[in-house]
Design a protein around this nucleic acid. Sequence first.
DNA 1: GTGATACTTAGCCTTATGGAACAGTATTCA
DNA 2: TGAATACTGTTCCATAAGGCTAAGTATCAC
Lengths: 110, 110
Amino acid sequence: MEQYSERLDVIFQALADPTRRAVLARLGGGPASISDLARPFDMALPSFMKHIHFLEGSGLIRTHKQGRVRTCAIEKAQFAVVETWLSAQRALWEGRADRLEKFVTEREEE
Amino acid sequence: MEQYSERLDVIFQALADPTRRAVLARLGGGPASISDLARPFDMALPSFMKHIHFLEGSGLIRTHKQGRVRTCAIEKAQFAVVETWLSAQRALWEGRADRLEKFVTEREEE
DNA sequence: GTGATACTTAGCCTTATGGAACAGTATTCA
DNA sequence: TGAATACTGTTCCATAAGGCTAAGTATCAC
């Protein structure tokens, strides 16, 4: 429960880069290979790969290699972590403090 | 409309730090001064101030100084930017592409 | 089995981030 | 007025982020 905060760190960090958000948008339409994903970007492949690794590390995507092709797909469930945080935040504004929100925000404040 | 992406950069970046999220959680309960906000953290004040400046720069909080005290308050409207992005992302999964989402994601992909 | 394809690994470079210390300014209180 | 309070400004430091090139490995297509 203490690593909830660290998960948020890495998820928000992952979302803080335009290249990575564009990849997520693209994957929203369905899985794609690294090369396909990289094509629109004016960036060396190793640099692009760092973004993929970061996204995978954050849990926002998962990848799987078959032969020489690595296919990436979005991991929808991880987006719920963000939504939960937003809900908890909103609950604070609204003065609500039911069980779940209390739980989440307490962890959040360490 | 091109700076929509840059706004997301800075907002997500702001959310990617536990100290800053804790400040937002605290401010969710109501405005507070810098000293009040800083007290729970084992951190030098100038270091803490950087977080406040970052949050203010991201638009997630606003501040206002009266006398020697600077009071901080949450800027709820800015959270909607995140929610809009999440909705757009979800819309992509769901294959929907109505006007608003199309607008947002096109900007998002640059 | 050779050549092209699709990543991977390794190193390097520059800038940004998150922390620190120390000194300074501006208010408020006694 | 003089001390305490509440920041603020400046500079420094270590590490992480985001980019690059060059070279390496593993498949696949012929």
